[in-house]
Design a protein around this nucleic acid. Sequence first.
DNA 1: GCCCGGAGTGAGTGACTAATCACTCAACAG
DNA 2: CTGTTGAGTGATTAGTCACTCACTCCGGGC
Lengths: 199, 199
Amino acid sequence: MSAYSHLQMTSPATTQRTLSTAEQRRAELVEAAVRVFAERGYAAPTTEIAKAAGISQAYLFRLFPTKPDLFAAAYEVASNRMYEAFAQAAAEAKASGEDPLEAMGRAYTDLIRRDREVLLMQIHSYVGAGIDDAARAAVHRCFERLYDLLRRETGASEQEAKQWFAYGMLINVMAAIHADEVDAEWAQVLTQEPEEGDC
Amino acid sequence: MSAYSHLQMTSPATTQRTLSTAEQRRAELVEAAVRVFAERGYAAPTTEIAKAAGISQAYLFRLFPTKPDLFAAAYEVASNRMYEAFAQAAAEAKASGEDPLEAMGRAYTDLIRRDREVLLMQIHSYVGAGIDDAARAAVHRCFERLYDLLRRETGASEQEAKQWFAYGMLINVMAAIHADEVDAEWAQVLTQEPEEGDC
DNA sequence: GCCCGGAGTGAGTGACTAATCACTCAACAG
DNA sequence: CTGTTGAGTGATTAGTCACTCACTCCGGGC
């Protein structure tokens, strides 16, 4: 019978009317996909994603014809979320006369706590980029946009940009391997927040 | 670890046998596993690894009872190869009065060209670390050993060590996503070799 | 009332894959 | 020659996965 009909029956009556119901479901599905892919990687089964989204697996495949399509959409959403966080941090820093480079650096560490999924999706996409051409293109686009934003908004030099990305990658990896749960010097050093005099 | 560590045992000179010893086959299998896992990630099927090693899939499972066991062994070999490269670079630099920190940095970029598999295994293990407990432990051990080596041999400060690892992670990721094949400013900047005045 | 189209699903299917099992054969000791 | 042991395999199994299809349900237009 209705196996999981008790999940979210309270569908908001005041839904945004700009989205049709199918588009809305698609958006919900992608949100769920981000959650599950972030946790279990590309190998996450579609059944589990469908369950997380509260729909049947069959309907998942109506909304996204193939699994790579779904993964690409999830990655797109996650990398947009990251981009927006950085753009906002840069804009706010600019408005308040702060150093935008430093603000964007802080935005990264903030992102770990608030939105761990985004960083995990990033790591998983690096693996996907080694195999899937579409994933690789998406990852390259993400780096390009972020690099352009950084150079444009902060005026960082090439060397500064490189260093900024390097620390970002370190944060990504440390989050992926759960270094924060390890009680050892290396873990403490490599996950600690940057001090003031960082160079 | 110590169970399969006899890489080149003394082959019996008196008797020539057409059949290999199990230990020898195990070592060959692990070498093949490193190649295949590096290329295709944790999802690489055991049939393919067996084929690469020139043995049957059934025998693969006799030599390693489970796939995670095999992956862990492959990762161990790959990270040892990395460790040895760093240790050697540090030792040589020390002997010749060079700066060991810089030498170890150069060893990393050299490693990309010579032994790309090692870096790819590293990236793949980050994903494995999010799922498999054994893989996570292995990755943590690898970081610990490397961190200790760095601090001991180069006398780098915590901050210097952190920066060294950050650049290492950047190199890892750029290799994984094939950034070197991209013709764009971000790719060129993030993959270029470090200049002399890097800080 | 009746059709039509879109939302949504239960029940599959074929392809694969980790792991098992029953078995063969080579080598050697006695 | 014979019994034993370890190397090695073909065939199979149990389970999982991406993906499909025939179907139901429901609201709106005629």
